[in-house]
């Protein structure tokens, strides 16, 4: 039994091992390793410029890596077998705007080597999956933003790939279309497709992703389920968010004394016991700060991201 066969049998659909990619002096991807199993959705979160796009393009086989390897269903990324096993939905709308939905799908289907009845069936399946059957003869550029996004997704599904990479598929999409896109992705995942999903929306990652990897400065800085990430980062501690009316310097000095940090007029702390809040507020009063709002909450994925990267998810 070969290693790749063993891997597939064990359910690993995509594997990145020690991947390094440099652009001149910049190391865009710095020793990243991760795996995605069949029927699993891995969320890839990271600030802009963290290396997500380079990592995704490496999985597609569009990057010459400096070291490490990427395999899709046991085959080297970029090989014909890997391409045929992989579907890629780029962030930009990569469809032909002047032809119809059906013609777009026909074109991409032929690029994947489909023809005849197989191609017709694939187009029919994609139109149904993307809920575009009624719009199949409409020219792509006349579609709404959400429909264009769905067509963009469908164009990567014609060959029914075993691994699909979604690069921020809901950018600029209205809530109704976003919901439809979630259903499409969930249907794929439930059918056993391995999915890598990059997003800037925490709620999307929490809803769709079985595991989440946070990437920053080209490295995976945390990986696990939503709960695992919160647990690893904050343990049993809770978050206190206190908003004050006062000078920023005074707020920062006060927060600094108690191990917190300030963003705008809001100071953020983590505590283990609710009883820790009263001494904090006493000290704030002594510092001349007037409390406007106080929130106690269980940390979430956004908190984890902010804590680990120092930036908001949407920055």
């Amino acid at each position: 039994m070969t290693a790749s066969t063993q891997m597939i049998e064990e359910g690993t659909a995509l594997e990145v091992d020690g991947l390094v990619k440099r652009f001149g002096d910049l190391t865009a991807v710095d020793g990243v390793s991760l795996t995605v199993r069949a029927g699993e959705c891995l969320g890839l979160l990271g600030p802009n410029g963290a290396g997500k796009s380079t990592l995704i393009r490496s999985m597609v086989g569009r990057v010459r890596q400096d070291s490490g390897r990427v395999t899709v269903m046991g085959k080297a990324a970029g090989s014909t077998e890997a391409r045929m096993a992989l579907g890629w939905v780029p962030q930009e709308l990569s469809i032909y705007p002047r032809i119809t939905c059906r013609e777009n799908l026909g074109s991409f289907g032929r690029y994947y080597g489909l023809k005849g009845q197989t191609l017709k069936d694939a187009i029919a399946w994609c139109l149904h999956w993307a809920a575009l059957e009624e719009k199949q003869d409409d020219v792509a550029k006349t579609l709404s933003g959400g429909m264009k996004r769905r067509l963009n997704m469908a164009a990567g599904m014609l060959h029914r790939p075993k691994v699909v990479l979604f690069d921020e598929p809901t950018v600029g999409v209205d809530p109704q279309s976003r919901n439809r896109i979630f259903e499409m992705i969930e249907a794929l995942r439930d059918a056993g497709t391995a999915i890598v999903y990059t997003t800037h929306y925490m709620e999307e990652a929490e809803r769709l992703c079985d595991r989440i990897a946070i990437i920053d400065h080209g490295k995976i800085i945390a990986e696990g389920t939503n709960e695992e990430l919160v647990e690893k980062t904050f343990g049993r501690r809770s978050q206190v968010l206190a908003r004050f009316d006062g000078e920023t310097a005074a707020i920062e000095a006060w927060a600094g004394r108690h191990g917190g940090r300030v963003k705008g007029e809001t100071a953020e702390f983590t505590i283990e016991q609710a009883g820790e809040i009263a001494p904090l507020l006493d000290d704030a009063t002594k510092a001349g700060l007037e409390l406007e709002d106080l929130t106690l909450r269980r940390p979430n994925l956004e908190s984890v991201f902010l804590h680990l990267t120092g930036r908001e998810l949407r920055d």
Binding site: R62, R83, S94, F108, A155, H159
Partner: peptide, 8 residues
């Protein structure tokens, strides 16, 4: 880029 990610 997308076309080049297919079999082409």
């Amino acid at each position: 880029e997308r076309v080049l990610s297919t079999r082409v």
